[in-house]
Amino acid sequence: MGNKSFNALTRRGFLAGTAAAVGTSAMAQNANSTELEGDISQTLRRNISSFRSLDWRPYFDTLANGAILVDTESRALHFWNQDQSVYKLYPTSVPLTEDLTRRGRTEVIQKVEGPSWRPTPSMRERNPEWPDFVGPGPDNPLGTHALYLSWTYYRIHGTHDTRKIGRRSSNGCIGLYNEHISELFAMTTVGTQVLLI
């Protein structure tokens, strides 16, 4: 009886210690990140996107200039080109919290390869230790390409931190793997319509 009790306690202790170590490791990895990301150990279960194909018609009246639908619940981005010959579905990162999430219609107003990054005023308020500017390169939180939207400070962009994809991990932007944003970048134009739901 005493031996069983000891084994149960040891197993419980091991599991608790492992969970604590994983959480500590995840937080340490985030120390140099320039985007907010909660304790990764708490979000591992939900690091998944819904890869369910959608039809564009319930969301858009036309495909003029192409269309991007971002589903923040399933953490997926859908793209249809103007003549319907191309449909793409990509996993994304989405905003960390509801108050950082913006939904509605917008459009691509600028395309930038090798974007630079500056924290928004609200980011600076929350994280005064963040740098004022990060130029293009491997430390840039916007990755290799960015689609600037008509909403101030909102982008669809790449990320060098691939752990963020499939998670609630951004300050409002929609993140894609660099290879996916590069592909999307080539297919979109200024004027591509965007809907976030």
Rank of each mutant, 00 (worst) to 15 (best):
R163E: 04
D55W: 07
A16V: 11
A20L: 14
Q84P: 00
Q82K: 10
A8Q: 12
S116P: 00
T97C: 01
E35Y: 12
S5W: 09
F14M: 10
T43W: 00
Y177K: 08
T62D: 15
G23F: 03
Y59L: 03
N81M: 02
S150D: 15
T43S: 13
S182M: 06
E113A: 12
G13H: 05
N178Y: 10
S25V: 11
T152A: 10
T43L: 05
I68G: 07
A67T: 11
F14N: 06
Y148Q: 05
R168P: 00
R168A: 15
R163G: 08
S33Q: 10
E37V: 12
R11G: 05
G135S: 12
I68R: 09
V190A: 01
Q84A: 14
E179D: 12
K164A: 15
N30Q: 15
T24G: 13
I48L: 14
L184Q: 02
Y90W: 04
M1H: 09
S85I: 04
Y154C: 00
G13T: 11
I197P: 01
Q84V: 00
T120W: 02
R126T: 05
G66E: 07
G38H: 08
T106R: 07
P58I: 14
P136I: 03
M187F: 04
L69Y: 13
L54S: 08
T18C: 11
W80R: 05
D139N: 15
D55F: 10
E73H: 10
F60S: 11
N30Y: 04
P58G: 06
T152Q: 14
G66M: 09
I165Q: 02
P136M: 07
R102K: 15
G2F: 09
T120Y: 03
R103Y: 06
E107C: 02
F185N: 00
F185P: 01
V108C: 02
P121F: 06
L142W: 07
N171F: 11
N171K: 06
W130Y: 05
N3R: 13
D161R: 13
Q82W: 01
D55Q: 14
R163M: 09
T162H: 10
I40N: 01
A21E: 08
Y177T: 00
F133Q: 02
W80C: 04
S53V: 11
L196Q: 02
Y87R: 08
Y90C: 04
Y90E: 03
G13S: 13
